[in-house]
């Protein structure tokens, strides 16, 4: 029998959803606004999309952001996986507590502090050894890697402790050398965690404004930096169009992920039934 739903709970749900999605909805609607002033409706138009695709500035900022995000995600996943392996698999080593603390510190460190300290580091390094000569894509990428790898390490560590050590022991017991065990057992099992870590690092980097603002140099503005500076100078509606495109991309991504998940679940159920019938 269907239970009668509580009106109170339903209205709270609606309010919450409205709170989350009305701003996005408004943004999408206003991206089709003809008027040059963001908050005044001037009829339906796609002129801002045209102007968006013609805007050199926005495209180069987007490309820069994507480049940084991809390189960052890749390096952060590599280093973070190594750190996670050390955290989860090397039980006792000298300075373990210190290492654990230092790995997770960037997670709780205010971004302003991280950004400022990295800026100081780059300036000092530039004075001492002449590198980095000027700040830009390299320094932003390095800064992003330093904090993203902490997130990856945490994901990998929890995934590893979830998998447990028994499978690796079983492989050793069957005569596999430790490197083989790593390649044939640990890494394949870790792959979903590494993918999750990569995606998280990618998103974090694409999202970051504060740290990038500290360590970037002239001529290298990431997309969040560009949007923020536009807001300060007065918003042009082509930013709305850009935001709509981003929302669309994210929505498609989420839909695909959901579709894959549902398919996997159905497959699992079929498998379970198959195993159960015998």
């Amino acid at each position: 029998m269907p239970k009668k739903r509580s009106t109170f709970l339903l209205s709270v749900l609606c309010f919450g959803m409205a709170f989350l999605y009305i701003p996005m909805f408004l943004l999408i609607v206003y991206s089709f606004n003809y008027s040059k002033i963001v908050s005044v409706w001037g009829g339906l138009s796609t002129r801002w999309y045209t102007s968006l695709f013609e805007s050199e500035e926005i495209w180069s900022a987007l490309m820069l952001s994507l480049k940084i995000a991809i390189v960052n995600a890749t390096f952060a996943t590599l280093l973070g996986t190594l750190a996670g392996l050390a955290l989860a698999r090397f039980r006792y080593f000298r300075g373990r507590t210190l290492f654990t603390g230092m790995i997770s510190a960037p997670l709780v460190m205010p971004e302003v502090i991280t950004g400022l300290s990295l800026l100081l580091l780059f300036i000092t390094l530039g004075d001492l050894i002449g590198w980095p000569e000027k700040r830009g894509i390299t320094t932003i990428t390095i800064a992003h890697i330093t904090f993203s790898l902490a997130y990856v390490a945490v994901i990998i560590e929890s995934r590893l402790s979830g998998i447990g050590e028994t499978l690796e022991e079983a492989a050793l017991d069957l005569g596999a050398k430790p490197l083989r065990v790593m390649m044939d057992i640990t890494l394949p099992l870790l792959a979903p965690g590494m993918l999750a870590g990569w995606l998280l690092a990618f998103t974090l980097s694409l999202d970051d404004l504060v740290i990038a603002s500290f360590v970037s140099g002239p001529g290298s503005s990431t997309l969040p930096m560009l949007i923020y500076s536009r807001v300060k100078l007065g918003l042009k509606p082509d930013i709305n169009a850009l935001a709509t495109m981003i929302i669309l991309a994210v929505a498609i991504g989420v839909l695909i992920a959901g579709w894959i998940l549902i398919r996997q679940q159905k497959q699992r159920q079929r498998d379970a039934q198959l195993a159960g019938t015998e």
Binding site: T166, E169, L174, K177
Partner: peptide, 14 residues
């Protein structure tokens, strides 16, 4: 362990 020629059956099969 990999050089001992010992076969182990683990508790949860592993």
């Amino acid at each position: 362990p990999e050089a001992r020629r010992v076969g182990m059956v683990f508790q949860d099969h592993a």
